[in-house]
Design a binder for these strands. Structure first.
Lengths: 180, 180
DNA sequence: AATGCCATGTAACCAGTTACATGATTGC
DNA sequence: GCAATCATGTAACTGGTTACATGGCATT
């Protein structure tokens, strides 16, 4: 399971409360690993028992107190251990592909409008990655060494969205050709 | 959930036993939706209660008897209903991306060899899709209408693998550049 | 007065994985 | 004799989702 490790990576970058983590999992890290706050709290509890993280209470005025979690030495060890084990190749799982495959038994127009929606979502996400890259890595040829990982992940997202758009376009073209 | 619908699509193409379905989910359909035989039997049971499929026992000699499932009218209705509802856009979830992101706290060489492994897997899969396309759709400009869905799914897999390779190559290049 | 942010959780449920179980036939 | 294929399941567990719960402060 990788949520533990995603949290460890996030905490290794900067200590945070469960709430903070939940917001990070809505944004940057969330682009390739989603997690709800409920699940984050649950996993943080387990990680604390495992001594991978430790919490200290931060009292605040005007807003609720919070528990700020920091990665421990053991947490860093675990991160290193995990990093050096091969990552299992995750299976694709696309409900949309199932729908396409069942085109003969389904509603062609609905699938068509589905493709358009998906294409638009890919375009939006691509623009986001593009803006993000322009902001953080204006010169891709000289990315700082400690930013390389984050940069490459961004590139991965970018490529993913590009190919998503390319697929949608092929589908739209095939549908268009069939209707004429 | 889409396993029900993946099974419905598969049974709409051709009636099958749970065992047959499990094999289909190892091959063609399995490229975008995996399922174990245990889970298939479980879901088939539920689908039978829901009247989406019906089973009849086929006695065999020399091998165990089997229950062959066929899609019902209600099953086809459900397939049509599902087809015409928008497909939720599934979140990416990549353990490998998490690992890349945590490169600063991990083992660079291990990640490097991981990339190489993944690239090789993408190449193998791409070759499979290529061979499959050459065999079933020798002339892509004239794909029969009832094969369009399956063809486009294959194209999606192809594009996916291609972009996976492109990402791996970018990572390898970045790593190489950093080491020189 | 209502909405949204900050902050942390519990409980019930669901989909999917892993381990275990059985038993006959066919091919090496 | 051993492994693979055919064929169908049960049981325990895990990861994740959805619904529910609480409560103060700041903004509109």
């Amino acid at each position: 399971m990788a949520l533990e490790h995603a949290i460890l990576v996030s905490l290794a970058e900067k200590s945070a409360s469960g709430y903070d983590l939940a917001r990070r999992f809505d944004a940057s890290i969330g682009h390739f690993w989603k997690a709800s706050h409920q699940q984050i709290y649950k996993v943080l509890g387990r990680m604390e028992s495992d001594k991978w993280v430790e919490a200290h209470l931060v009292e605040q005025s005007g807003r609720p107190d919070k528990k700020v979690y920091a990665i421990t030495g053991e947490g860093r060890d675990e991160l290193m251990r995990w990093s050096s084990t091969p990552t299992p190749i995750e299976a694709y799982r696309s409900e949309f592909a199932v729908k396409l495959r069942g085109l003969n038994f389904g509603d062609r127009d609905a699938v068509l409008s589905d493709v358009r929606t998906r294409r638009a979502a890919h375009v939006t996400q691509l623009a986001y990655y593009e803006a993000s890259a322009a902001k953080h890595y204006p010169d891709p040829s000289t990315v700082a060494d400690d930013e390389l990982g984050a940069y490459l992940v961004l590139r991965g997202g970018f490529i993913q969205e590009q190919s998503g758009i390319a697929w949608c376009d092929e589908i739209l073209q095939a549908f268009g050709a069939a209707e004429r």
